[in-house]
């Protein structure tokens, strides 16, 4: 059970949050310009790596804000939390 430091509320129990999967996958601005493969890349393809993974989390039972989390999937250590729109940290 993680402790997650919501950038808007502070440290809270994991049960207040939901994970929204991989971060930094922007919705294409012009989907109609994409062929099937390109669209499928956006729609379906997600990484599942051992190591630092960038994820979206939502404080659903709190401020309901989305933010980004850099988590080491090998030990669940949260290396960094940063707001939506910010660039992923170099880790």
């Amino acid at each position: 059970m993680f402790l997650i430091n919501c950038p808007y509320c502070g440290e809270r129990d994991q049960s207040e949050f939901v994970s929204g999967g991989e971060a930094h996958i922007a919705r294409p601005k012009q989907p109609t310009e994409l062929n099937d493969d390109q669209w499928a890349e956006y729609l379906f393809m997600r990484k599942n790596i051992k190591g630092i993974q960038f994820e979206r989390w939502n404080h659903v039972h709190g401020c309901r804000k989305w933010f980004n989390v850099a988590r080491d999937t090998s030990n669940d250590k949260i290396e960094k939390i940063y707001k939506m729109g910010e660039q992923p940290p170099k880790l």
């Binding site: 979206r56 659903v60 309901r64 804000k65 989305w66 939506m84």
Partner: peptide
């Protein structure tokens, strides 16, 4: 509600 908030916060701020 969650889905709409997600799009507003992350795709169309």
């Amino acid at each position: 509600m969650s889905k709409l908030e997600d799009y507003l916060q992350t795709e169309w701020p």
